[in-house]
Design a protein around this nucleic acid. Structure first.
Lengths: 154, 154
DNA sequence: TGATATTGCTCAGTATGCTGACTATCAGTA
DNA sequence: TACTGATAGTCAGCATACTGAGCAATATCA
């Protein structure tokens, strides 16, 4: 009988569970209310102004049906804007607001602190190795989920 | 500006996302309808007959409010039973049914196959190392989530 | 051009996960 | 024994994630 600790799937779930908890705790301590998912979306919008929802979803590997709600909440918090695209009337162009920019700037130390805390059991060398192995496993499995990572095109 | 690929939190989410997708696909190919979470719960009930919900939650690091729904669905599928405990009228004792045992037995190859597929980008040595590092990071962060792993007591 | 396929987005439904609150019960103690 | 605190379980509410369906708009090609 295999132990849970020998199942990569169980370890994946557990590590992700801790990562989310640490992120939320650090961000709340800093006085903000933003989830890991919302943070990644907001940072990606800032880095790619005017991108549409499908492109955003591809850049951070979210499902297109999930991104709708995430953006809803960013808009509701006043951190992002969604407007109709002039080139393609199906698409929405996403922009970060000044408030969103301010939030991102102020929240960065908490986010970085969270990344450190979730690896606090590992040495610097081990942390690097863990990330390398995760990246490699993820790259090989990218197309196995409904929401694969996709590059910006052009 | 840090890339997503340098954020352990993002890698954790992505790896877990792939792990779940692979699990569900393999299990469905085998003709079953069971989530990773339901599988872990059922296997743990089988290994610890008569355990209560809080103990089960601790053994697999689920939140106690999450386990309620998971067990609901196992019961509804006829794979597990929930009955009142005689020793503590607050608690429910969990048992696996014959159908549950049959399902676990038949589903095992698919589950093991899933674990291999989610690591298909890594060599055997790398897979071992990834699991070692995940276990170590998880152990150090165990108490940072609301649902930490807890041992069976006696 | 007109039919067909594809794409961007949304929605309904289901399953985790969490916070916080609540009930019922149990355990320890004054 | 009465009080207090802890514990087992549930529930409401919110935020991911996914499946599958559907609508509107665009792209493709006969």
């Amino acid at each position: 009988m295999k132990d849970n600790n020998d199942m990569p799937g169980h370890l994946a779930r557990r590590f992700q569970q801790i990562a989310v908890a640490v992120f939320l705790a650090e961000v709340e301590d800093a006085g903000f209310d933003l989830t890991p998912v919302q943070y990644a979306a907001l940072a990606t919008i800032k880095a790619n102004p005017g991108l549409d929802q499908v492109t955003l979803a591809g850049l951070i590997a979210y499902d297109r049906t999930t991104i709708t709600g995430v953006i809803d909440r960013l808009v509701q918090k006043g951190l992002a804007e969604r407007r109709a695209s002039s080139r393609d009337r199906r698409a929405r162009e996403l922009e970060i607001t000044d408030e969103g920019r301010r939030t991102l700037r102020k929240i960065t130390p908490a986010v970085e602190s969270a990344q450190r805390i979730m690896l606090r059991g590992l040495s610097a060398k081990e942390s690097e190795e863990l990330m390398r192995l995760l990246r490699k496993a993820i790259a090989a499995g990218n197309d196995l989920s409904r929401a694969p990572l996709r590059d910006m095109q052009a």
